[in-house]
Lab assay of single mutants.
Amino acid sequence: SSRTRFTDYQLRVLQDFFDTNAYPKDDEIEQLSTVLNLPTRVIVVWFQNARQKARK
């Protein structure tokens, strides 16, 4: 499976959201998916990875 290449804009939006809320609800994931034009699955994985990094 090929890795998703995020744009600077997508990363900024995801990071800004994460800084406020590391555990987005389903409807928030749907909204991010629509706004960023990314599959919900990709967003879910991004947040999982971001939470892992934040824990270190």
Rank of each mutant, 00 (worst) to 15 (best):
S1L: 09
S2P: 12
S2Q: 15
R3A: 15
R3V: 15
R3S: 15
T4A: 01
R5I: 15
R5H: 15
F6M: 14
F6Q: 02
T7A: 08
T7W: 01
T7M: 05
T7D: 10
D8K: 02
Y9N: 13
Y9T: 15
Y9C: 09
Y9M: 13
Q10N: 05
Q10Y: 01
Q10M: 08
L11S: 14
L11G: 11
R12H: 07
R12M: 02
R12T: 10
V13R: 14
V13K: 13
V13W: 03
L14R: 00
L14Y: 00
L14V: 06
L14D: 01
Q15N: 08
Q15P: 01
D16C: 04
F17D: 02
F17P: 00
F17R: 13
T20Y: 03
T20M: 09
T20K: 14
T20G: 11
N21G: 03
N21M: 03
A22I: 10
A22V: 09
Y23R: 13
Y23N: 03
P24T: 01
P24E: 01
P24Q: 01
P24K: 01
P24W: 02
K25I: 10
K25M: 04
K25Y: 01
K25T: 05
K25Q: 06
K25L: 06
D26M: 10
D26T: 10
D27Y: 07
D27H: 13
D27E: 03
E28F: 03
E28L: 04
E28N: 05
I29S: 01
I29A: 05
I29M: 11
I29Y: 12
I29G: 00
I29T: 05
E30H: 12
E30L: 10
E30P: 03
Q31V: 06
L32H: 00
S33F: 00
S33M: 04
S33N: 05
S33H: 12
T34M: 08
T34L: 12
V35A: 11
V35Y: 02
V35Q: 12
L36W: 01
L36C: 12
L36F: 03
N37C: 04
N37D: 10
N37M: 06
N37Y: 02
L38T: 12
L38D: 01
L38P: 00
T40M: 15
R41N: 14
R41M: 10
V42K: 06
V42G: 10
V42L: 08
I43Q: 00
V44E: 14
V44D: 10
V44P: 04
V45S: 14
V45Y: 08
W46R: 04
W46D: 00
F47P: 00
Q48K: 03
Q48H: 03
Q48G: 07
Q48D: 11
N49V: 05
A50Y: 08
A50E: 09
R51T: 02
R51Y: 07
K53C: 14
A54C: 14
A54S: 12
R55A: 09
R55M: 14
K56E: 02
